[in-house]
Design a protein around this nucleic acid. Structure first.
Lengths: 184, 184
DNA sequence: TGACATAGCTAACGACGTTAGCTAATCTTA
DNA sequence: TAAGATTAGCTAACGTCGTTAGCTATGTCA
């Protein structure tokens, strides 16, 4: 045997798991999601690729773990931001721009809702709902706008001469004074 | 030799190219982008995988060709739609929902701007710019919103109980009466 | 002490994109 | 018409990917 083996207390088990997630995260942030391969992941923590399957059922499970971390960090980054569309959009944008690969992981992959910590989704949505005076539909539209803006910027889809600050300002204007919701 | 070979007039060359693109398109629409593999693509037109490299430099080139078709069809689908946010968003949504895989191909891939037919991008943007009274920044924000809405719906990211129609209505409200642009 | 669980390992499978090199058919040219 | 050049197929192979099977050594526990 090369290193320690055997039963490996739950603690050790968690250590290796955490170590693998940390390694995956490093690969993601520095080289993007494509750099996360089973063999490279193993090499990063000093084991062979197939041994990873002792800790995760498959590669998607590793990415799911990363996804949860990403969502929680994103939520953390938005704590303390004023409940305004402009402020929330700016905060989200800032976080996404400093973690572009993580943002893509969070958004370009089918989400595994069942294993997200319960309440995480609501907690993430709360500030926008507050900014929209409790109008959940409006909050979801605003969410789509912010996500769309960041997606387009990250994918370099705005024309090279576009004034992106002005686009964010325009969005803020739109959401600052929407027509009042019609009576239902 | 199995079939015809030799010089193969430019016409025949184009035929095979078009045939391959059509096959790729069929695979995309019926099974998604992952179903487009070199070997399956070849099999679909009766040749072996590697022969595809006589017609395309690599797989990305096939996808690029599909992308161009997708953009043009999307532009076509929006022709005749009134220049309103609500109408344009509805038209875009309708098209995306009937071509979900194509929509993902258009949006989840780095775009190869250099080989898009020139003007296509502007032509696609024109209706939204008109709907926003010529305010290009506002038009781009609206674009981000529509794309974000469709992305979220296609990825099943709205909570299962969300009223998506209401979300579109809210977005339309936001863009229907934005605050006037501040004087510059 | 012996049974069991576990975390490593190697070897291998099938699928992927891609390259190298061959062959046969056609077009062009002398 | 004969020779040469182009071309569109082909097979075989490479390296990488995720994943599985099966072995082995270690540690815990009755």
């Amino acid at each position: 045997m090369t290193t320690d083996a055997g039963t490996a207390s739950p603690t050790a088990r968690m250590d290796r798991r955490a170590e693998l997630i940390a390694a995956a995260r490093h690969l993601l942030e520095t080289e993007g999601a494509e750099a996360i391969t089973i063999r490279r992941l193993g090499a990063a923590v000093g084991i062979r690729g197939p041994s990873i399957y002792k800790h995760f059922p498959n590669k998607a499970a590793v990415e799911d773990a990363l996804t949860i971390i990403g969502f929680m960090e994103l939520a953390g980054a938005l704590q303390g931001v004023p409940f305004t569309f402009a402020a929330l959009a700016g905060g989200y944008r800032q976080w996404a721009m400093s973690h572009p690969h993580m943002h893509r992981l969070l958004n370009n992959r089918p989400i595994n809702r069942s294993q997200l910590p319960i309440g995480l989704e609501d907690r993430a949505a709360a500030p926008l709902v507050a900014a929209c005076d409790g109008d959940r539909a409006m909050a979801r539209a605003a969410w789509a706008t912010i996500k769309g803006l960041v997606d387009l910027e990250l994918a370099h889809r705005f024309p090279p001469d576009a004034d992106i600050e002005a686009v964010y300002a325009a969005a803020a204007r739109a959401y600052a004074s929407p027509s009042p919701s019609p009576p239902t």
